[in-house]
């Protein structure tokens, strides 16, 4: 897993729309980096999130 320091803000592109926290699992794909940002609240008070995603990254095997 990459830490935030590895990610350049210019490499992360916004996914259109705003999402609720429990919807994130529907959005996430393997081999991509994500940045989740607070995007206010829905009319019903639910917090909303903006998602930024990177292009697919190659899978790096973890050291044993």
């Amino acid at each position: 897993m990459n830490s935030i320091a590895d990610l350049s803000p210019t490499d992360l592109k916004r996914i259109p729309g705003l999402y609720r926290r429990w919807e994130l699992t529907e959005v996430f794909e393997a081999h991509r980096n994500y940045q989740i940002e607070d995007a206010g609240t829905h009319a019903d008070g639910t917090p909303l999130l903006a998602i930024f995603v990177s292009d697919p990254v190659p899978d790096i095997p973890e050291a044993t």
Partner: peptide, 11 residues
């Protein structure tokens, strides 16, 4: 539009 949709642009 692409450059305007990056995290850097949002910052």
């Amino acid at each position: 539009m692409h450059s305007a949709s990056t995290l850097n642009f949002q910052r």
